[in-house]
Amino acid sequence: MDLAVGTGLDTGAGTGVGAGQGGYTPFVRVTGPGGEQLPWVLVRAPVVTRAHHLRLAALARAGVRFAGVTSHLGFPGPPWRDERDYGLLCEAWLHCFRDPEHFLPPDGPRLLTSESDFTDPLRVDPARLAVGAVGAAGAGTEGAAGPDIVHVSGREPWRQEAKNWPLAARCLRRLARETGLRILVVDAPAGVEPICGVRMVGPLPWRRLLAVIAGARALFVPAVIDASPRVLAEALCLDVPVVVNRAILGGWQYVNPFTGVFFDGEDDAVAAVRAVLDARQRPRAWFAAHHGPARAGARVLRLLSALDDSLPGSLTHVLLTPDQGPGTR
Rank of each mutant, 00 (worst) to 15 (best):
G138T: 04
D107W: 09
D264W: 14
P205T: 09
F262D: 08
A67K: 08
L42E: 08
A190F: 15
L111C: 02
R217I: 01
V224F: 13
L304E: 07
A218M: 05
V242P: 04
V5R: 14
P326C: 11
G87A: 03
T70A: 15
D99A: 15
H72N: 11
D226Q: 14
L219A: 05
G143R: 07
S71I: 11
F27P: 03
G14M: 08
D125G: 08
G292W: 01
A275P: 10
L172C: 05
L209Y: 10
R280I: 05
L219M: 11
G108W: 03
G20D: 04
C237R: 01
K163E: 01
L175A: 05
D226T: 10
I225V: 14
G140S: 15
M1I: 12
V201F: 03
T316R: 15
A51H: 03
A227W: 07
H95V: 02
A19L: 12
L209H: 06
L315P: 05
G154M: 06
G18F: 01
G6Q: 14
A285H: 08
P194G: 13
G32Y: 11
E234A: 11
L319P: 02
V270P: 05
R282Y: 05
V255W: 14
A272N: 05
P100N: 00
C171H: 10
P293L: 09
T25M: 10
P241S: 09
A211C: 01
V47W: 04
T259R: 05
M1K: 06
T25L: 10
V242A: 02
V185C: 06
P109E: 01
C237D: 08
I248Q: 14
D107K: 09
V47L: 11
R61Y: 03
G138E: 11
A275H: 02
P78A: 15
P100L: 02
F263S: 13
C96R: 00
L304Q: 02
P229G: 07
R302L: 10
R246F: 15
G191S: 14
D10S: 15
T141H: 14
F220G: 07
D226F: 13
A168Y: 01
A145F: 06
P46F: 06
R246L: 12
G265N: 13
I248G: 03
R295G: 06
L301P: 02
V28L: 12
H291K: 12
S153W: 08
L181E: 03
L111R: 06
L9H: 15
E36W: 09
L56I: 13
A45W: 03
P109C: 02
T259P: 05
R299T: 03
R282M: 11
L89Q: 12
R29W: 10
P205H: 07
G12S: 13
L184S: 06
A137M: 09
A58V: 01
R159A: 13
M1V: 12
A67R: 03
R29E: 15
P241R: 10
V270H: 10
G12R: 03
V198R: 00
V69R: 10
S305V: 01
T11S: 15
V17T: 10
V186E: 06
H52P: 00
A60C: 06
D323I: 02
L319T: 07
P147H: 02
R84T: 12
S305D: 05
G191I: 13
P312V: 07
H102T: 06
H102L: 09
V152T: 00
R284Q: 04
G32C: 04
G260E: 00
L111P: 06
